[in-house]
Structure formats: C-alpha cells, structure tokens
C-alpha cells in the first residue's frame, strides 16, 4: 500500500483524489441525513428516558457529519456549512435508506413516526458504518484514519442500543414482532444502495483510502442476516428505488434538505 498521506494538498495532488473526495461525500452525507432523521424524533420519543438516549445518538451522527464536512473543507471543497446545506440534491451521495422519512407527516405538526422502522433503519446503518469505520481506521489519508478511530468509539453504543430494542421487540409479543418484520421488509427495499461504493468504487479500496471497501458489502450482509437469523427472520432481498451513491435520490431528500437548510439559506454569508 502507498505511504500515508497527511497533507490535504498532497492528497489533492494524487491521481486517486476523486475517489477520496467521493468517499468523503458519502460519509458526510450519510451521517448528515441519519442525524437529521434522528433529530426529528426529539421530544416525541416513545418513552421519556428513551427520548433522551436517542437524542444522544442523533447528536453523535450530526457531530460525525460535521467532522467529515470539515475534512472536505480542509481539502478546499468549500465551507463545511455550505457543503452540508447548499449542495443540490444531484450532488448528494448518501444512501436512500438514510434520507427516508421516519413515517408520515411533518415532525412539528402531526408526525406519524414509526419507531420500529427507525430502529431497523438505524441498525442497518450502524452495522454498515462500523464495518466501514473499521476499514477507515487504516485509511491512507491520515486525517480520515484519525477521525474514523474517534467516531468508531461512539458507534458501539448506537449498535448496542438498537440491538437491545430490537431484541426486546422481537421477543415480547406478536404485535411488536410483526412491526419489526414489516420494518425489515420496508428497509430492505431502501438499503440496496447502502453498500454501493459509487462511480469510483474500485479506486476507493485500491488507492487505500478505505482498505477492505471491496468486501464491506458482503460483510455487512452477513452481519445483518446473522442477526436476523437469531430471531428466525429470513434474509430479505435487498433493493432500492434509485441509487443515492450516484445522485439518484427520492423526493424525500429534497424535502429534508429544504427543512435542514431553511434558516441558513436566508443568509449563508451571515454569522449565525
């Protein structure tokens, strides 16, 4: 593997730079959207104590997004907040799974949010995120490797939290089990692009930006299906109504970005 790259200018000068920036967009956009979706739950949790715990997870994800956008800023791509809030939908690289709404309805008026779907979606994302971060800890781009190690430290709580809940829901009654089964079926039709590496996929692993990227999808599928198998849930067929890694998103992303950037867009040059 090529020697570690620390300096952003040096990274930009490598022929593999497009693969690095593509990877960083995926990382940043994934966490931004999953963090946004989790933040919509704030104040509406199913149990008071849980509302508080899930709020920490939402903050962690948004904080991870901020870290990645700052890495992009250091690479001269623009200001972190502009990158998070002003880029058009076609440039977004998050998976469709994380942009999907928590349920019907607006978060501030009459939200009919689905807690089972929220947990299943986040669980699928955590599983992938952890595999991805484990690889990124060895990234050739040193600032990314350091960020990944710090972020990975917070992910164990997320995964354990989601699993604790799913275990409870799957083993305590037919109604909650049925809700989780429906949520798995729904999420399976959205998560097809989660493990897609995008247009520069091969270079991501070959250039050492993300060692192990080429096996990440298979490892993820195995981890998820082994978890589901513990509860006698059949492995689902993974598909997706588009491909977020290639900028082909659902209309839900437009709506999410409009909310997320509503205030900032009033005056992106102002101090907020």
């Amino acid at each position: 593997m090529a020697a570690s790259v620390r300096d952003p200018e040096e990274a930009k000068a490598t022929p593999d730079f497009p693969a690095l920036s593509e990877l960083l967009w995926q990382l940043a956009d994934d966490d931004l959207l999953i963090g946004f979706r989790a933040s919509e739950w704030l104040g509406l949790g199913v149990h008071i104590e849980e509302d508080i715990a899930f709020a920490s997870i939402a903050q962690d994800e948004m904080g991870h997004a901020m870290t990645y956008f700052q890495l992009l800023e250091a690479l001269g791509m623009g200001r972190a907040d502009d990158l998070a809030q002003l880029r058009p939908v076609s440039e977004r690289r998050n998976s469709i799974l994380v942009e999907w709404p928590n349920g019907e309805g607006d978060y501030a008026e009459t939200p009919h949010f689905d807690w089972a779907f929220t947990l299943v979606r986040h669980f699928l994302y955590d599983q992938f995120e952890i595999i991805r971060l484990e690889g990124l800890c060895q990234s050739r781009y040193a600032p990314l490797a350091e960020a990944a190690a710090a972020i990975l430290g917070e992910k164990a709580y997320h995964r354990d939290h989601q699993q604790l809940w799913l275990d409870r829901l799957l083993t305590h009654g037919a109604e909650s089990r049925a809700r989780v089964e429906r949520a798995v079926a729904q999420a399976a039709q959205l998560a097809g692009d989660l493990t897609d590496l995008g247009p520069w996929g091969n270079q991501v692993a070959e250039a050492g930006w993300w060692p192990g990227a080429d096996q990440a999808g298979a490892r993820w599928q195995q981890a998820v299906e082994s978890f589901l198998g513990r509860y006698q849930l059949a492995p689902p067929t993974w598909s997706c109504p588009g491909n977020g890694r290639r900028g082909d998103h659902s209309p839900h992303l437009d709506a999410a970005l409009a909310v997320l950037s509503e205030v900032y867009r009033q005056d992106p040059l102002a101090q907020w």
Partner: peptide, 20 residues
C-alpha cells in the same frame, strides 16, 4: 432513578439520562 424494562436497558438509558 429511571423506568426501564430490564437491567440492560436501564444501563443503556442511564448512561445518556444522567451522565451525558
């Protein structure tokens, strides 16, 4: 103190409820 379903859930909730 908090309301939880199991000791494991109580541990997970305690961490973010009281020790943020």
């Amino acid at each position: 103190s908090l309301l939880a379903s199991s000791p494991e859930m109580a541990l997970a909730l305690a961490q973010e409820n009281f020790l943020r």
